[in-house]
Every structure is written in C-alpha cells, then in structure tokens.
Computed example of a mutant assay.
Amino acid sequence: MAEKDIVFITGANTGIGFEVVKALLQSPKAYHVLLGSRSLEKGKEAISQLAEVLEGSSNTVELVEIDVTVDETINKAAELVETKFGRLDALINNAGAAFDKLFTSDATDFRTLFNKSYDVNVSGAQVTTAAFAPLLIKSKNARLLFLTSGTANLTGHEQALIPSRAASVPKGWPKEGLIGGQAYKACKTALNMVMITWHWFLKDDGVKVWSISPGMLATNLTGNPELLRKAGAGEPSLGGDLIKRVLEGERDADVARVVTQNGAVQPW
C-alpha cells in the first residue's frame, strides 16, 4: 500500500462518513480507505453498497471495527493499521451522535445526556486521535480532521440571543416545546478546542489539522433526513466532497480553523 494514501474514517458506514468513502474511491488520487464501523454487520452492508463504485476504481476499501466509546476497539484498530501499513496518512474523526430531544424531556436527566454526548463526540475523538497520532507522525503528509457543526458557533449563538430573536423562547418553566440541542452544541464547540490543541501538539511533526463544518445536510443524525430535506438541507455527498477537497490540499491555507463549504471559515 506504499503507493496509496491510507485514510481511516470513523463512523463511515453511514451518513457523511460513508460519502467520504465514496468520494475517495472515485478520486483520481490513490487511496486505501479504512471504513471504520461500530458494527461489523453494518460495515459489511456499507461495503456491499460500494460495489458499483469499486468496479470502476483502482482505489480500495477495507472494513475495520471501531467503537469510539470503547478503548479496546480503538487500540485494536490502531494496532491493525500499524501492523499492516506502519503509518496513517489521514484520520477523519467523523463518528458522532446527537441525543438531545425536547428541553422538557432532556431536563429530567441532563447529566446522563451530557455525559453520553461527550463520550461519543468529544472523548471518543480525543482517545482515537491519541491512539493514531504515532502513526500520523510517520506519514510524509499527514492530515487530521474533526467533524464539527455549524451549531458550534459561539458568535452566532450570542447574536441569536438578542431580544428581537429570542421571542420564540417560551416564558416560564419548564420550557415547553423548546428544542435547545444543548448537549450536541456544547460537544461540537468543545471538539473545536480539541482540534486546536492537536494542531499545536502535532504542528512540528508536520501534521495538518482542521475542523470540518459541512453545513446542514440530510443525514440520519436526527433520525429524520427527509424532514431535514424539507427544511432545506443539502445532500450528505456535499460533506463527503468537502472532506475530500481538504484531504487533497484545497484548504491548506486554513489549517487549525473550522472550514465550511465554498471556501469559507466558520467564526468561533
């Protein structure tokens, strides 16, 4: 595999992660893609869906079991990559989950909601990156990506809380009908700090680091992609294409920033 870039993508059996796999397999650049999946069964299903793409590609894909909330699977995945390839050219921390519902139902157990959300979205990415960092350092052109969100925008949320825009928040307690998404937003904001710290940790080792904010896309994150489409969400393939372009150097001028579609950078 020395002639191909080795790319590991967590949570790659569905959504944006799956679209990254497709985009890389169709790229003229040479890749061997490690499709990380928490479930081997779902990972196999994902690879079967790539049959048509693989027929016309010289690039390759391999299924790797990884659950970012279980250290044993993370370490086994890193050991596999070290044994087979001796390096990793790109790690895409894509695995994530949203557990928020209505504020009234979330408020009954905020601690569990936040801890569960952080375990997947923040701790999972941190531990996975630490496990693969020695392999990234061995690459001649390593890239490390964290999938964040447009909701992880402190500036935007501060502006949205001025009185004229806060009229939709109901008065009194509990906040009936309010969808706050607090845990998910807090996790993705924290993930941007994780990204920055890894930038400084690995900068002198030649590893380029970004957060990726792909925009509102019709993934299964909320459990209803069709509802998201009706609300104006784009197709998940847009996220896959953005990540491919970052891997292939289009956003090298924006290292250590939150990059979005159309060459833009997301405010903190």
Rank of each mutant, 00 (worst) to 15 (best):
residue 1 M to Y: 08
residue 4 K to A: 15
residue 11 G to F: 05
residue 15 G to W: 00
residue 21 V to E: 00
residue 24 L to S: 07
residue 25 L to C: 15
residue 27 S to G: 08
residue 32 H to Q: 09
residue 39 S to R: 11
residue 41 E to K: 14
residue 45 E to I: 03
residue 47 I to W: 02
residue 47 I to C: 06
residue 49 Q to G: 10
residue 52 E to G: 07
residue 53 V to F: 08
residue 62 E to W: 07
residue 63 L to T: 03
residue 65 E to D: 10
residue 66 I to F: 05
residue 69 T to C: 15
residue 70 V to A: 10
residue 71 D to A: 12
residue 71 D to Y: 07
residue 72 E to T: 09
residue 77 A to D: 01
residue 77 A to F: 05
residue 80 L to Q: 10
residue 81 V to D: 00
residue 81 V to L: 08
residue 81 V to E: 00
residue 84 K to Q: 15
residue 89 D to F: 11
residue 90 A to I: 04
residue 91 L to H: 02
residue 96 G to M: 07
residue 103 F to A: 12
residue 108 T to R: 13
residue 110 F to G: 01
residue 110 F to N: 04
residue 119 D to H: 13
residue 120 V to G: 04
residue 122 V to G: 03
residue 123 S to N: 08
residue 123 S to F: 15
residue 123 S to M: 10
residue 126 Q to H: 15
residue 130 A to S: 15
residue 134 P to L: 06
residue 137 I to W: 02
residue 137 I to K: 14
residue 139 S to V: 03
residue 139 S to P: 05
residue 143 R to Q: 11
residue 144 L to Y: 03
residue 145 L to W: 02
residue 147 L to H: 02
residue 148 T to Y: 03
residue 149 S to M: 07
residue 150 G to D: 08
residue 154 L to D: 11
residue 154 L to Y: 04
residue 159 Q to D: 05
residue 165 R to S: 13
residue 166 A to D: 12
residue 167 A to K: 12
residue 169 V to C: 04
residue 178 L to E: 01
residue 186 A to S: 13
residue 188 K to C: 01
residue 189 T to P: 10
residue 193 M to F: 13
residue 196 I to V: 12
residue 196 I to Q: 13
residue 199 H to C: 12
residue 201 F to D: 08
residue 201 F to R: 14
residue 203 K to Y: 10
residue 207 V to L: 13
residue 209 V to E: 03
residue 210 W to H: 14
residue 212 I to C: 08
residue 216 M to T: 10
residue 217 L to N: 00
residue 217 L to W: 01
residue 217 L to T: 00
residue 219 T to G: 06
residue 221 L to R: 07
residue 221 L to Q: 07
residue 224 N to D: 14
residue 234 G to C: 13
residue 235 E to N: 09
residue 237 S to M: 07
residue 239 G to E: 03
residue 240 G to S: 08
residue 244 K to Y: 07
residue 245 R to V: 03
residue 245 R to I: 05
residue 249 G to Q: 15
residue 250 E to F: 06
residue 251 R to H: 10
residue 254 D to E: 15
residue 255 V to K: 05
residue 261 Q to A: 13
residue 261 Q to S: 11
residue 263 G to C: 09
